[in-house]
Design a protein around this nucleic acid. Structure first.
Lengths: 336, 336
DNA sequence: GGCCGAAATGACATCGTTGTCAATACTCGG
DNA sequence: CCGAGTATTGACAACGATGTCATTTCGGCC
């Protein structure tokens, strides 16, 4: 005869009934509001414990209207260590501020990015950090005007004004290439992601600048763009090494490409030198010389998160672009 | 004089006013409910477009009460590629079902796990996938009874009955060790995570079983547990190799340990053989023979997600334990 | 003892949406 | 042209919490 088959969660009003007080008093106790006698507080807390009551965060944030204590993160692909490092940093930063994180992968599709963004807005996240896939973000404008905060990470916004946190793609790449050139390399294979992507364009610009400054011709035959997957990078590297007058070094435009090129070169051709944008964990164990254009990815994520929380906290200053520096690190076989 | 400084989001009732219909009719249009004349639908849609209205998902799920179209994922550390691969798989599976994912890292703390779990329940997630850090999950019982679905991943629940999805830790490890023993190794260093962790215990059991079956003594001096960080693993490996009668092979109990051991061994001692639980991306480029106990991590996550969605969909069958098989893969320098 | 201000408490409206149910409009058959 | 049945629409309550404001209670003081 008990209706245990009806597992309704206890509400604030169940607690009120059990404790013999009004719902408002229960609300006060839950929120540590003043003006509740200790004795009543105890009674309410007892009822809460007994019923296993937990405040419905949904209802709470609907009523109070302001904060859902949730932020969104839209990245390209969580399985990519670069992005998961960002997600981890952002998640930790958020957690330290009592905020939860909804992560979504846009899979590099502008359309999906847009859908995810709007869905997260419907959930009334307090703000979003986004690594944009699309080239036009004017669709965000209404949401921005309605007080949703957005910080762009790794790539700047287009068509709207918003904070962004970037790395020094061109400068880092140029410095890296200058190092390669300084080591005597003249034929350098360049493998890049799609030039629709900001970072790829910037990095290629860095390549060109370095070549130009050194007076080395930019041989189109040694440049391959639109490489979206390690396998394609491997194929491109293999093709280049098979040509006549093959490259003596490669520039890998991102961590996915580096993986592909490393796999293609395998344990052979120890002489081929590598310059890679993005550091990675096992870099030192790679069987060949390797210079990485490195930066603190955790810091990258934290910086964006800090900016976002400033905005959520009410900062209405003019949007700013923050650029993180890179530095070169020699990896691979350590000379002993 | 305009009050644009008051960026209130338009509500369903603003739309109703603009379209000259009742809120209920707007609600019908939003939800594709039948019985709205096309002409009225158009009028409402026009108003929606004009005002930039977006349904408040918070209010919606509060009212309808059932689903928030959100699930939670509690893992140890999103920065670990193993967990990020899981998160990516779960996220994708969820997204394909119109569900969002809140990811949280417990940092291997039972207390934090508990807090995160309860917080996510307060947000009324439809269900959770959890890689538990704690050894007692009876605190979850009230929530389970109130219809929150939980699937345990990688480690089974303790103190409650719930679905779990595991891998064949003991069997996989035993098979791997048998391979090592078959290759003639007799002194095998074993480096393991804390034995408070289920997977570590199971894998150690697999080690012992393999040793016992082969009649090889289990030398405590070559066993190191409670290794939580690559640096500790590196230190442990270094210490063992410096002993007299050093191991000719190592078993690395998880991917973090493998990283540490690889770093410690560096490019030297090409003869030291490695057996590692968990495959990893650059394994083939490692400078030494390597056997990995591999399994499909994406499948692992998807299996848990599928189970969870079955539960959310109403499956009330008896909780089941699913065990994924492992297989051995030779990695490292390829014989040619 | 009675009065005053502060503390404690509760009644009720409200957040933005959807469920219930009643009211109205329209269709078709006879 | 009427009535039955269906399609369309809206009024109102409700989801579970909190804000507003009124009311009650209490301690202290003259």
């Amino acid at each position: 005869m008990t209706n245990e088959d009806k597992p309704r969660r206890p509400t604030i009003s169940d607690v009120a009934a059990a404790a013999g007080v009004s719902v408002k008093t229960v609300s006060r106790v839950i929120n540590n509001a003043p003006s509740v006698r200790p004795e009543v507080t105890d009674r309410v807390l007892a009822a809460i414990g007994e019923l296993g009551f937990r405040r419905n965060h949904i209802a709470s944030s609907l009523r109070s209207g302001q904060s859902t204590a949730t932020i969104g993160l839209i990245i390209e692909d969580l399985a990519n260590p670069f992005y998961s490092a960002i997600a981890a940093a952002v998640g930790r930063y958020a957690r330290e501020r009592g905020t939860h994180l909804i992560t979504a992968s846009s899979e590099e599709s502008p359309e999906l990015e847009r859908r995810l963004f709007l869905e997260l807005c419907q959930r009334r996240v307090d703000g979003l950090i986004i690594v944009p896939a699309g080239g036009d973000h004017s669709y965000m404008r209404p949401e921005l005007e309605m007080n949703t905060q957005v910080v762009f990470l790794d790539r700047p916004p287009a068509g709207i004004l918003a904070d962004s946190v970037l790395v020094d793609n061109a400068g880092g790449t140029r410095a890296g290439l200058e190092a390669l050139l300084g080591r005597g390399h003249r034929r350098i294979g360049v493998i890049s992601d799609s030039t629709t992507i900001y970072t790829a364009r910037e990095r290629l610009a860095g390549v060109r600048a370095a070549f130009a400054a050194a007076g080395v011709p930019y041989d189109e035959a040694l440049v391959r763009t639109d490489v979206a997957h390690p396998d394609q990078a491997a194929a491109a590297a293999t093709a280049m090494t098979r040509g006549d007058d093959p490259p003596t070094a490669f520039f890998c435009g991102n961590n996915r490409i580096t993986v592909g090129v490393l796999a293609a070169l395998g344990g052979l051709d120890q002489d081929v030198d590598l310059l890679a944008f993005d550091d990675f964990e096992l870099a030192d164990l790679m069987p060949r010389p390797l210079t990485v254009i490195a930066y603190d990815v955790g810091e990258f994520g934290r910086t964006a998160a800090a900016r976002l929380f400033d905005r959520i906290g009410g900062d209405r200053s003019w949007p700013a672009e923050t650029v993180l520096p890179t530095h070169l690190v020699r990896r691979g076989p350590q000379p002993r």
